[in-house]
């Protein structure tokens, strides 16, 4: 078996008495697309933040390309992040910078590229997500939610990362725009040959972009299998989630 690009081993994380992650084990192989399903408050975002090093797990290990990066700081952490792209749920574009400065942020700051060269690269990448050069000089507040997601996608792929995280990539978008974003994600991830981990509760998105699907429930991965098996998983929790039923083993979080 090829070495996973990312591997989480028995990762636990609590906030006071709230045990969010209770021993998560998951891995993704290079070039594969893994979708992690989970209801609101199931710990999906916390898992992602641990994997990215934005939070440190209470126990367990995180391996990136075979190296233990759980407690990495400084240069080692930067080296890992340089190979990772992240699309945040809200886009998380910097309001004070223009679209192209957002897309080229890493090139301008971490890689100290010349502004003219960085702008060219940013416009090139914007084209890949079907945005014209005319939006490059606008500010994030001046473009629509769908466009902001595309800009955020452009920012995540501009450095050709080996692994891209997608945090609810279609949340807050209409079904047509959401589908367009899904198509772009598949197209760009395949073009880069990158692995991807997406967390979502949007089944349409999951079916479309996943090679493999896993389900996170009460801080643990309770099921994992090929995307084609999702409709006959044999797991009551997964079935309830896939069919969006309020009745079943998972209690609605209201």
């Amino acid at each position: 078996m090829t070495q996973p690009i990312l591997e989480l081993i028995d990762v636990e994380k609590s906030f006071g008495s709230n045990h969010v992650l209770r021993g998560v084990n998951i891995d993704v192989a290079p070039g594969h697309s893994l979708v992690i399903l989970g209801g609101s408050g199931s710990g999906k975002s916390v898992m992602l933040k641990n994997a990215l090093g934005l939070m440190t797990p209470d126990s367990g290990k995180i391996l990136f390309d075979g190296d233990d990066v759980t407690y990495d700081q400084g240069k080692e952490r930067e080296a890992m992040r340089a190979r990772i792209g992240m699309l945040f749920q809200s886009g998380a574009l910097f309001d004070s910078l223009t679209v192209w400065e957002n897309v080229a942020f890493r090139l301008l700051n971490a890689e100290k590229m010349k502004r003219s060269e960085a702008k060219e690269r940013a416009i090139e990448t914007l084209k890949k997500v079907r945005l014209g050069a005319s939006v490059a000089d606008l500010y994030p507040a001046e473009i629509s939610g769908g466009m902001q997601k595309r800009v955020a996608l452009a920012r995540a792929i501009i450095t050709k990362p080996d692994l891209i995280f997608f945090d609810e990539p279609t949340t807050g978008l209409d079904p047509i725009t959401a589908d367009a974003i899904n198509d772009l994600i598949i197209e760009q991830v395949k073009a880069l040959g990158a692995a991807s981990i997406s967390i979502t509760h949007d089944m349409a998105s999951a079916r479309k972009i996943a090679d493999e699907i896993a389900m996170l429930f009460e801080g643990k991965i309770i099921w994992r299998g090929p995307a084609s098996d999702i409709d006959h998983s044999g797991n009551d929790h997964v079935d309830q989630f896939v069919h969006g039923r309020a009745d079943g083993p998972i209690q609605p979080s209201i």
């Binding site: 990215l52 934005l54 910097f94």
Partner: peptide, 21 residues
């Protein structure tokens, strides 16, 4: 507002240290 909209997390993932930036 930057923290709440995940912009500070985004800075970190883009290798910009919020203390410096």
């Amino acid at each position: 507002a930057m923290k709440v909209t995940e912009q500070i997390d985004a800075l970190k993932t883009l290798s910009a240290n919020p203390f410096r930036y």
